[in-house]
Design a binder for these strands. Structure first.
Lengths: 250, 250
DNA sequence: CGTAGACTTGAGAGTCATCAACGTAAGTGG
DNA sequence: CCACTTACGTTGATGACTCTCAAGTCTACG
C-alpha cells in the first residue's frame, strides 16, 4: 500500500488506529512484534498509538525533552542528530520503517538527541512504562527489545571505526541497500531521503568529500547518481570497498 | 578489600562464590543489581557464577564464539576489540569493574568482538537465558538492563562523532576520571591499564599522536604522565577541551 | 523568471598518519 | 650480574587524506 492509497483509505473514514495495527502491519517481522503470536500482538496494539503524519522538518523530539516513549517508524524516514557547543551538527543515524528511535534516552530519562522527519512520515508511539511492563509479561517482546538494542550497540560501534572516506561511503550505501531490501524495495535502486550534508555529517566527512567520492564511484561505474536517486551498479565491488564495516544500520 | 586480602580470604577456605555475592558486592550500585531489594539480590546470586581470575592477555571471548552469557567485570579491566580484514585492530571499549561485556552479541547470538583482560581480573558470568527470564520477573532488573544498554548506545554514538585528537583525548581522560571516581578511586590520579596503542586504536588515532598530545597537555600543565601513571592537574580545562563529547563510557 | 538552497568542482591549507630512529623499561639466559 | 631481547614509548621529518574556502552550476519553488 503506497502513501497515496493510505491517504485514500483514511479519507474513507477508516481510523489510522485500525489500519495501522501491529497485527496487520507489514513491518511486523522487522519491528518489535517480531515473532509474537496473535494474542500478544493484540496486547501490543493495546499500548501503541499512532501519530498524525509528520512533515519534512517536523521534530519528533528534541534534546532535553522528557523521555516518555520509544518510537517506531511506520513510513518515511527520520534522522537523529546532536548539535555540539560549536554549532557543528553530528548525525547519529537514519531511521527507516520498522526501526526504533529514542532507545538512547532510557538511561538519562531525557532525550540526548533530536529526531526530525526527512520526508512525510508516520510513527507508532510506544509509551515506555507500558512497554517495559509488557516486556515483563511477554518474553518474545522482551527478547526482541534486547535484540534491537544490541543491534544498535553493535552498529554504533562499527560506525565509530577508523575508515577512509571511500570505505565509509561504500559501507553506507551497502547498508542502506540491505535495509531497503529487507523492507521489500529494490536493493539496487532507491532514493536517498537525506541530503549530502546529512550523509557527510553522519559519516564524519565534509559534504564536498561525499560529492567527490560519489563522482569517483560514478566514474568507476560502481554507482549512478542523479541528485537523490541512486543506482548501485556493482554491489560486489562496493562490498569489497566497504570491507568489514558491518551493518551500518541505525 | 584489596587483591592480596582476597587471596588470603580464599586461602582460608571461604568460597569465592560466597565472598563475591551480589548481595554484598561493593559494585552493586553501578552494576545490574542496582536498586534491587535483598530478596531479588538473592535470586540474582542464584544465576551468577564467578570465574577464576583472568590473567593479562586472557581472552574472555572471541569473535564467532557462541553467545551464552553476559559478563560483568568484578575486578581489573578488559578491552573489547575487532580486527578488520586488513589486520587493523579497532578497540571498541575499555571495561571497568561493574560494567557489562557482551551485550552486542545478543542480536547475532554470537560474539562480534574479542574481549581480553588488560590486567589480572575477575568477572561474574550471567547466563543470558536465565538473565532474561529473571528480567521478566524482576522489573527492577529489567529496567537496569535497559538502562545499561541504553547507555552503551548513547556512548558509542558520541565516540562516533567528529572530533579532533585533542578533544578525543581530553574526553577520554575525563571519562576515565569519572568512572574511577564512581568506583571510589581518585578522580585526579590513576593508572591507565591500557597501552598507548590501545588508546590510539580506541580513539581512531595513531599511537604517535596520543604521545604527542599527552606531551602537549603536560607542557600546558593539564596533566602529568609517567608511563601508565597519570595525574589530571586541570580537570576544568580538560573538560573544556572535551567539549560536548558526552560520557565516553564503554 | 528570479531567488534560494543544494550540489559540484577547484585550489590551498592543516591535521594527522606514516616512516624512521632513538630511548627506556622489563624479562631472559648466559 | 650483565649482555641481549623485546615491547613500549617518545620524538622528528615527510607526506597524504580530507577540510576549508571559494566560485560556479543546477533544481526547485514561489
Amino acid at each position: 500500500m503506497n502513501s497515496t492509497a493510505v491517504l485514500a483509505f483514511q479519507a474513507k473514514g477508516f481510523s489510522a488506529q485500525h489500519q495501522a495495527a501491529c497485527s496487520n502491519c507489514s513491518l511486523a517481522q522487522l519491528c518489535l512484534p517480531m515473532g509474537l503470536c496473535s494474542a500478544d500482538l493484540e496486547r501490543m496494539d493495546g499500548i501503541v498509538t499512532r501519530s498524525a503524519p509528520q512533515h519534512e522538518g517536523d521534530h519528533l523530539f528534541r534534546v532535553g525533552d522528557a523521555f516518555k516513549a520509544v518510537y517506531a517508524v511506520r513510513a518515511g524516514s527520520f534522522k537523529s542528530y546532536t548539535v555540539d557547543s560549536e554549532g557543528r551538527e553530528h548525525v547519529l543515524g537514519f531511521h527507516l520503517p520498522g526501526e526504533l528511535l529514542g532507545l538512547d534516552a532510557i538511561y538519562p530519562e531525557k532525550h540526548m538527541c533530536n529526531a526530525v522527519a526527512l520526508d512525510t512520515a508516520t510513527i507508532c508511539v510506544l509509551p515506555y512504562g507500558q512497554l517495559t511492563e509488557l516486556a515483563g509479561e511477554i518474553s518474545g517482546l522482551r527478547s526482541q527489545l534486547f535484540r534491537l538494542m544490541s543491534k544498535d550497540i553493535a552498529d554504533a560501534a562499527t560506525l565509530a571505526g577508523d575508515f577512509t572516506a571511500e570505505e565509509r561511503i561504500a559501507a553506507f550505501l551497502i547498508g542502506l541497500s540491505r535495509r531497503f531490501q529487507q523492507r521489500g524495495f529494490s536493493r539496487k535502486e532507491f532514493n536517498l531521503s537525506m541530503s549530502r550534508r546529512d550523509i557527510a555529517n553522519y559519516l564524519r566527512l565534509a559534504p564536498e568529500t561525499v560529492s567527490r567520492v560519489f563522482a569517483r564511484f560514478e566514474k568507476d561505474s560502481l554507482i549512478a547518481v542523479e541528485r537523490r536517486a541512486i543506482k548501485l551498479l556493482d554491489v560486489t565491488k562496493l562490498h569489497g570497498l566497504a570491507r568489514c564495516m558491518g551493518e551500518m544500520h541505525a
